Computed example of a mutant assay.
Amino acid sequence: MAGPEHARLRRIAAKALSPRRVELLRPWVEELAQELAAKLIAQGPPVDVLEGYAIPFALSVLNELLGVPPTACDDLRRWADGIVAVFTALSYEEMADAAQKLGGYLAELVEIKRHAPGDDCLTWLLQARDDNGDALSPEEVTQLAFAILLGGYVPPANALAQAVLRLAIEPDLPRDPASVPALVEEILRQDQGSAADQGRVALEDADIGGVPIREGEFVLAPLRAGNHDARRFPEPALVDLARAPGHLTFGHGPHHCLGAALARLELQTGLRALLAAAPRLRLAVPFEQLEWRRMFLTLEGPVAVPIGWWNRLNGAACTERSPGLSPSVVRRSRTLDTQT
């Protein structure tokens, strides 16, 4: 969407997804992350961070955010998996059926919240008003809930798994709690820049970087290229925790991701909890053996992120295989020079 109608929806929805609202979830999200991290480590190495930690973490946060009853959680994951067809392989007919079922369920849930408000995002969206007193219709809330569920499931789970992967293959990166926020921003810039790639159709003729774009032409802007632009980010391949903010992973301007605050909370909390449970985590297979999947347009993610860890008591490696490091991805953080 664009123009006045987009601005109206965004003004109202932003009140329900404000950083202040998201911050109220922090204690619960922190407790959830600690429980899931402990459960993962208790399985013993190697463990898959994506399926065993990142996916249930992202889904549990979404269910809490939207006020989904526990009895419906499994259905929501099955429908969401069917729509994005990322963690499952489905036909177009199965994807369409999953979308219809998810939309129908969310419409029912919105109707329930209209008559029995709760402390959840659907209620906040129903109750939100802009300065003119305008509100969202139940249909608009249902559509937003659909977008929140899909946007808040795969991208955060994928980002958390890739953040752990980055730490697993770069053992010199700082892992103390104070460094996590800056580390998250660099990992978002480094590895997640294609998560928000969007196709656009030019509304008028334009010239960008000396390239003529004509009205009606299709354009796909790879945000990862912007995040690695050396004119904006010197030595872009370097993980530099002292960089000034400004990456494009959450978009820019009027289409900046409304869920950015929630995504940052999940990534920071998820990393802190896992590092507290396994501070010396390592990749359990050589990097070259990892399999990757293509999602949406250009978003890529690992099929699995198997990790082990070093025993903090005797220094023994707790993996079935020795960690493998890829020279092309192992880079030293500039900030380590003063921390070592």
Rank of each mutant, 00 (worst) to 15 (best):
A72M: 05
C73Y: 09
C73Q: 12
D75C: 05
R78Q: 13
A80I: 11
G82Y: 13
G82M: 06
I83V: 05
I83Y: 04
V84Y: 05
V84D: 11
V86S: 11
T88M: 01
T88G: 06
T88H: 03
T88W: 08
A89C: 14
L90Y: 01
S91L: 11
S91H: 07
Y92A: 08
E93C: 14
E93M: 03
M95F: 02
A96I: 13
D97S: 15
D97T: 07
G104Y: 06
Y105W: 06
A107N: 12
L109Y: 08
L109E: 05
I112N: 11
K113C: 09
R114N: 02
H115R: 15
P117F: 02
D119K: 10
D120A: 06
C121K: 03
L122Q: 08
W124D: 10
L125G: 07
L125D: 15
Q127V: 09
R129A: 05
N132G: 14
N132H: 04
G133D: 03
G133I: 07
D134G: 12
A135T: 08
L136S: 10
S137W: 05
S137L: 12
E139K: 07
E140D: 14
E140P: 13
E140R: 12
L144Y: 09
A145R: 05
A147F: 00
A147N: 11
A147D: 06
I148W: 02
L149V: 11
L150D: 04
L150V: 03
G151H: 00
G152F: 00
V154P: 07
P156F: 04
N158D: 13
L160W: 00
A163R: 05
A163F: 00
A163N: 06
A163E: 11
L165Y: 02
R166N: 15
I169E: 06
D172V: 02
D172M: 10
R175L: 09
D176H: 13
A178P: 01
A178W: 07
S179R: 03
V180E: 01
P181Q: 06
A182Q: 14
L183S: 04
V184L: 00
V184W: 00
E186G: 12
I187V: 08
I187R: 00
Q192D: 14
